[in-house]
């Protein structure tokens, strides 16, 4: 999947969980869900679940532990999609 497409998919998923629309508009790989977008930690689970549903992947606990920013989320999505392809 194209990088830009992946970022915009993540942007759409995160949107309901952030009130900081300016930061959301300028989302990049470096954006942190909690420190930049001010997502509540209890809603980070929702983001993980939404990503699982949208991409048809399963995010294990070790991957979830690292999923604090856009870059980590992209890496996890791509790794899990590649795993699915091999199956």
């Amino acid at each position: 999947m194209e990088k830009e497409a992946l970022i915009s998919a993540i942007k759409e998923i995160v949107s309901p969980y952030t009130e900081d629309k300016t930061t959301l508009e300028n989302i990049s790989e470096e954006t942190d869900f909690i420190t930049d977008l001010k997502v509540n930690s209890a809603n980070l689970v929702d983001i993980v679940l939404d990503i699982e549903e949208k991409f048809g992947i399963e995010i294990d606990n070790d991957s979830m532990a690292k999923m604090l920013n856009v870059k980590a989320a992209m890496e996890i999505i791509e790794a899990k999609l590649a795993e699915n392809d091999r199956k």
Partner: peptide, 17 residues
Amino acid sequence: KAGLDSNWKRKGYLDKI
């Protein structure tokens, strides 16, 4: 606020936390 912001009954939610 937690009641408004989080749907903890959604499938998979409790299992993750």
